[in-house]
Amino acid sequence: MSGIALSRLAQERKAWRKDHPFGFVAVPTKNPDGTMNLMNWECAIPGKKGTPWEGGLFKLRMLFKDDYPSSPPKCKFEPPLFHPNVYPSGTVCLSILEEDKDWRPAITIKQILLGIQELLNEPNIQDPAQAEAYTIYCQNRVEYEKRVRAQAKKFAPS
């Protein structure tokens, strides 16, 4: 494992614990031996107030490669969400998460999670990743928002 990646992720964890947006979660997972795995984080993004996503808490896994922060983490909703920019596998399609697009090593975990929260309610229809959600979003916004509200209710924190 890269010392650069681990040191950056340790800084990220410290900064997150000191200050993070209300309702968001970002925690490194534990290895079988109980030690912390900084390369694999369990996160959760709350649906934004005043949107059909409100009330939901959407679980996301963030996986970092050894060359982080040169390369972005892979962000994957578990379980996958109904959304035009979420692949059926759950992987998020967002330009700041793509090395050859808008990724920059200075982007923080907090910025990534806030960017994904923004994307939930403002899909990028130029870059669809899920045919069904994309089609319904474009053709029947009322039905799309109904499905999103049902999903938010399903993923409401207990």
Rank of each mutant, 00 (worst) to 15 (best):
S2V: 15
S2G: 15
G3V: 10
G3T: 08
I4F: 08
A5N: 12
A5F: 09
L6N: 13
L6D: 07
S7I: 07
S7T: 11
S7M: 14
R8V: 14
L9W: 06
L9E: 07
A10S: 10
A10V: 09
A10E: 01
A10K: 15
Q11T: 14
Q11W: 11
E12Y: 01
R13V: 01
K14Q: 04
K14M: 05
K14L: 09
K14E: 02
A15W: 08
A15I: 10
A15S: 13
A15P: 07
R17H: 01
K18N: 03
D19C: 03
H20C: 05
H20S: 01
F22W: 04
F22K: 01
F22S: 04
G23F: 03
F24P: 00
F24M: 10
F24S: 05
V25W: 07
V25G: 06
A26Q: 04
A26W: 09
V27H: 02
V27T: 03
V27Q: 01
V27P: 08
K30F: 07
K30H: 09
N31E: 11
N31K: 11
N31D: 08
N31M: 13
P32E: 10
P32C: 09
D33C: 05
D33T: 04
D33K: 02
D33S: 02
G34V: 05
G34A: 07
G34D: 09
T35G: 07
N37G: 12
N37E: 14
N37P: 03
N37Q: 14
N37D: 13
N37Y: 13
M39L: 10
M39E: 14
M39V: 12
M39N: 11
M39T: 10
N40C: 05
N40Y: 08
W41V: 05
W41R: 02
W41F: 06
E42R: 10
E42K: 12
E42F: 10
E42P: 03
E42T: 12
C43G: 11
C43Y: 05
C43T: 15
C43V: 15
C43H: 00
C43Q: 02
A44Y: 15
A44M: 14
I45R: 06
I45W: 07
I45K: 01
P46A: 09
P46Q: 04
K48I: 07
K48N: 10
G50W: 05
G50L: 10
P52Y: 11
P52A: 14
P52I: 11
P52H: 14
P52K: 11
W53S: 00
W53C: 00
W53M: 04
W53R: 03
E54Q: 12
E54Y: 07
G55H: 13
G55N: 09
G55K: 09
G56H: 07
L57N: 09
L57C: 12
L57R: 11
F58K: 05
K59C: 13
M62T: 08
L63N: 11
L63G: 13
L63W: 00
K65D: 04
K65I: 14
D66F: 09
D67W: 02
Y68V: 04
P69T: 00
P69H: 03
P69Y: 01
S70Q: 07
S70R: 09
S71G: 15
P72K: 05
P72T: 05
P72H: 05
P72E: 09
P73K: 02
P73M: 15
P73R: 03
K74N: 15
C75V: 15
C75N: 08
K76S: 15
K76E: 15
K76N: 15
F77Q: 00
E78P: 03
E78F: 04
E78I: 10
E78S: 11
P79C: 13
P80W: 14
L81H: 00
L81N: 05
L81T: 03
F82V: 03
F82N: 03
H83Y: 01
P84G: 03
P84M: 14
V86T: 00
V86N: 00
Y87A: 03
Y87P: 00
Y87S: 01
P88Y: 07
P88V: 08
S89M: 15
G90C: 07
T91V: 15
T91S: 15
T91M: 10
V92S: 09
C93G: 03
C93W: 00
C93Y: 00
L94K: 00
L94H: 00
L94D: 07
L94N: 04
L94V: 15
S95K: 04
S95P: 01
S95T: 09
I96Q: 06
L97N: 01
L97F: 07
E98H: 15
E98M: 13
E98C: 06
E98R: 07
E99S: 11
D100M: 15
D100L: 12
D100Y: 08
D100K: 12
K101V: 13
D102R: 02
D102I: 06
W103H: 06
W103Y: 15
W103T: 03
R104L: 03
P105Q: 03
A106Q: 05
A106F: 01
A106S: 14
I107H: 11
T108D: 09
T108L: 14
T108R: 15
I109W: 08
I109Y: 03
I109E: 02
K110D: 07
Q111T: 13
I112Y: 00
I112M: 13
I112E: 04
I112Q: 13
L113P: 07
L114D: 09
L114M: 13
L114C: 13
L114Q: 12
G115M: 04
I116V: 13
Q117K: 08
Q117L: 09
L119I: 05
L119P: 03
L120H: 03
L120M: 11
L120C: 05
L120A: 06
L120R: 03
N121Q: 13
N121Y: 09
N121V: 13
E122P: 02
E122F: 11
E122C: 13
P123F: 03
P123A: 06
P123K: 01
N124K: 01
I125Y: 02
I125N: 07
I125C: 11
I125D: 05
I125F: 10
I125V: 11
Q126Y: 10
Q126C: 11
Q126M: 11
Q126D: 10
Q126I: 12
D127N: 09
P128F: 01
A129Y: 06
A129N: 00
A129M: 00
Q130L: 13
A131W: 00
E132G: 08
E132H: 09
E132P: 07
A133K: 04
A133C: 09
A133W: 03
T135A: 13
T135W: 13
I136P: 01
Y137W: 00
Y137P: 00
C138R: 13
Q139N: 11
Q139L: 11
N140D: 13
V142S: 14
V142G: 13
E143W: 08
E143I: 12
Y144H: 03
Y144A: 00
K146T: 13
K146Y: 12
K146M: 14
K146H: 14
R147H: 08
V148S: 03
R149I: 13
R149H: 10
R149A: 06
A150S: 12
Q151V: 02
Q151Y: 08
A152E: 03
K153R: 12
K154A: 12
K154Q: 11
K154T: 11
F155D: 08
A156C: 10
A156V: 10
A156L: 07
P157V: 04
P157S: 12
P157N: 10
S158F: 09
S158I: 12
